[in-house]
Simulated scan of single mutants.
Amino acid sequence: MKATFAPVPGEGRRVALGVDDVGDAELAAMVADLWGTDGVHLVESGAEPVAYDVPSILTGARSWVRGRADAGDGPREFTFFVKRVHHWRHSPAFASVPPEIAEWAAASVPWRAEPLVYTSDLADRLPVGLSMPRALRVEERDDQTAVLWLEAVAADPVEWSAADSARAARLLGRLAASARVAPLAAIDPQPWHVRGFVAGRLAHTVLPGLADEATWRHPAVREHFGDLRLDLEAVVADLDRLADEFAAARHLTAHGDACPNNLLRREGDQGFTLIDFGFWRPQPVGFDLSQLLVGDIQVGRQDADDLPERAAACVEAYAAGLADEGLVVPLEEVRRGHAVSLMLFNGLPSLPLEMLQEEADLAGQGGVDDDFRARLDHRARQRAGIARYALDVLARTDP
């Protein structure tokens, strides 16, 4: 989409950036760096928020900076993607953390992976078929925030096919096993352990909803999840064992949030551009398959009807990607790693609790319309598809 911006007679016209803006001289230097030229004259520029409907506790702002500059051969257009990442205590979601565990919770979610990744040489280490945006500027601040100025990346807008998912799975397997990438797998020094996730996210937001009779009386939950309740409760009873199995599994490099939204399918070739490295770290083999398979289902962009078939193909493709890099891992190990990760991070949290809360809020503000009820019912059915598959693959791989 084209945007029209007023000429820039001086600094401070990119008001949408607020404190994340830079001076005109710095912006011109970044444009010159982007174009690989000695210098440019900045003609005009402007900024606007990115339209993005998926919230993140580690992201404070996303903006487009567009304009025109002249490197001596006439004005031409440039675009940057500017992203502010932060410690999650800066997120509005942190306000819902009980005060008695606030300090512990604040230390439980790493946030520096993204600025560290963008200032590393990961781009030169990625397997063929994967790339990442170039960072023109990374500014870390004392208040535990960082501002990233990244090149804009074109992405193919066509809906993903099963073949796209399998191709991405194979590349994620190559990423996991790459000896060149491995030295950067633990680039974020902040400790993270699955026990913190269980004691935090699951214990405080997921398990109370699973244990609440009111949740199961809700018509959409009763219809779509009713036959899954006993099996999900059995997983909760076995949660400590699953967490121990997760922790003891073979760990490899993981993107951490490898949903289709963070794997930009490049126009004109078969590759993908990785973005959003906030949860980058070593994780159990097969970890990245979870978000690849169910990330779009969770947010309502894809149906779960063919999930078992897509998953089977992706597990095999991921194992093939590991072998491409010289690491032969039994298919059973990949499938079990996928099963345990999926259950902990997507299966147990599959109930649409956030929409049930939204419905209660709407009811208190005057009423819930039929459109919302239809969306809630659809979301519950798709989320139940995730839970059903997660329970099935966990049971079939249980050693």
Rank of each mutant, 00 (worst) to 15 (best):
A6H: 12
E11C: 11
E11P: 15
R14H: 10
L17N: 10
V19K: 10
D20W: 05
E26P: 03
A28K: 10
M30I: 07
L34E: 12
W35A: 09
W35R: 12
E44L: 07
Y52T: 01
P55L: 09
S56T: 08
T59I: 12
G60N: 08
R66W: 10
G67F: 00
A69W: 02
D70T: 01
A71T: 00
A95C: 00
V97W: 04
P99L: 07
P99R: 08
A106F: 05
P115K: 06
L116R: 14
S120G: 11
A123F: 07
L126S: 06
V128T: 15
G129P: 01
A135D: 12
V138P: 08
V138A: 06
D143C: 03
D143I: 09
Q144W: 12
A154W: 10
A155C: 11
A155M: 07
A155S: 14
E159C: 06
A163P: 07
A166S: 14
A166D: 03
R167V: 01
R167P: 00
L172G: 01
A177V: 01
A179S: 15
I187F: 12
Q190A: 14
R201V: 13
A203V: 05
D212I: 03
E213F: 06
A214K: 14
A220F: 13
E223K: 13
E223I: 00
G226L: 06
G226H: 05
L232V: 09
A234I: 00
A237R: 15
F246G: 04
A249W: 11
T253K: 04
T253L: 02
A258G: 07
N261Y: 12
E267G: 04
T273C: 15
L274S: 11
I275A: 13
F277D: 05
G278P: 08
R281P: 07
P282R: 02
Q283L: 13
P284S: 03
G286V: 06
F287M: 04
L289N: 09
L292V: 00
L293W: 00
D296N: 13
Q298T: 10
V299R: 12
P308T: 06
R310A: 01
C314V: 01
Y318C: 01
A319D: 06
A319T: 03
G321M: 04
E325H: 05
L327V: 12
V329T: 14
V329I: 12
E333S: 13
V334W: 00
G337E: 08
L342H: 10
L344H: 08
N346Y: 09
D361S: 13
G367L: 08
F372W: 04
L376R: 10
H378P: 00
H378W: 14
R379Q: 15
R381N: 07
R388H: 12
D392V: 05
D392R: 15
L394V: 07
P399N: 02
